[in-house]
């Protein structure tokens, strides 16, 4: 099989579209959350300004090689996740670098950024970073379990590990979506989704009140800007997977934007309504509610 080199610029184009969409989307969701608190909230372009400002800071301090690599790993996780999953089904331009076994790779990339962040923040030597990392890793691990179970369930259901094939199987009407053909797996995955979006009730990792900002306590200037880019990119990349696996994928950009926005709103709605869980509470919640649903999903299939 020959590799089509034109795929690379197309994939980069996807990346640019998604980063910009992510920056606007996170600001929009923040604005919606602010409106829920009867505030105006940040301007919609605030994320761009913050990015420019952080890149424009004149000094930055490194704590060592891993500290430097932390944000890089994190961004790699986000970019990798996006690039190896088709963002638009049936489009030659925007299927990116997807291939037969990309589902497993995607699962790996979801976790990759967190690990890189843990190593980098660990080297900064700040005690709050260490607390944040331990909380983050335990919570993400707990949240990952139901997602993995749900993904296995879906893979069993469609007898494939290729995201493209899974999307293809869901075409032809809303009732073909995994949401309706395998509701248990979708429920488990959405529980996991809540946990990995860093919004209440599962935002104890960042915990601005008790442990200042969590793992990135020591990060600043361009390091922070890199992580902000990732914070815009990563949720969208993750939601692309969700959209592809469970909600029938997207065939054009408007549908893509709409579906991603709606999936994000699930977490935003839960976020403005519920207060924060402590780490042990959230882990217990995942183990008691989400994991059994995931196991059930596999059993049913």
């Amino acid at each position: 099989m020959t590799f089509d080199w034109m795929k690379i610029p197309y994939a980069l184009l996807t990346l640019i579209i998604v980063v910009n969409y992510g920056l606007l989307l996170t600001a929009l969701v923040q604005k919606i959350a602010a409106r829920a608190g009867r505030r105006h909230g940040i301007p919609i372009w605030q994320n761009y300004i913050d990015l420019v400002k952080n890149y424009a800071l004149r000094t930055s301090i490194s704590h060592g090689v891993m500290y430097y690599l932390g944000p890089v790993f994190r961004l790699t996780g986000g970019v990798g996740l996006l690039l190896f999953v088709p963002s638009l089904y049936g489009s030659e331009m925007f299927s990116n670098l997807s291939f037969a076994g990309d589902l497993i790779l995607a699962l790996y990339f979801v976790f990759f950024g967190t690990l890189g962040m843990a190593l980098g923040a660990g080297e900064s030597g700040h005690p709050y970073s260490a607390i944040g990392v331990s909380r983050g890793l335990s919570q993400v691990t707990a949240a990952e379990l139901p997602l993995a179970l749900a993904v296995f369930s879906v893979a069993l259901q469609y007898q494939t590990l290729s995201v493209t094939d899974i999307v293809a199987a869901q075409q032809g009407g809303i009732t073909n979506w995994t949401l309706f053909t395998n509701p248990l797996a979708v429920t488990a995955a959405m529980f996991s989704f809540l946990g990995s979006m860093m919004r209440p009730p599962f935002d104890v990792v960042l915990a601005p009140q008790e442990i200042p900002i969590g793992p990135p306590t020591e990060y600043h200037s361009s390091y922070l800007a890199l992580m902000q880019t990732n914070r815009a990119l990563f949720p969208v990349a993750k939601m692309v997977i969700y959209m592809n696996l469970f909600f029938g994928g997207a065939t054009s950009w408007p549908i893509f934007f709409l579906k991603i926005f709606l999936i994000y709103m699930v977490s935003a709605l839960v976020g403005v309504v519920f207060p924060r869980f402590r780490v042990e509470q959230s882990i217990r919640w995942f183990l008691v509610w989400a994991v059994p649903v995931g196991v059930l999903a596999i059993l049913v299939v």
């Binding site: 505030r39 909230g41 940040i42 301007p43 900002i213 306590t217």
Partner: peptide, 11 residues
């Protein structure tokens, strides 16, 4: 104050 691009950072 968030309207004016003012935010509070804990670090």
């Amino acid at each position: 104050a968030y309207r004016y691009g003012i935010q509070w950072r804990p670090t």
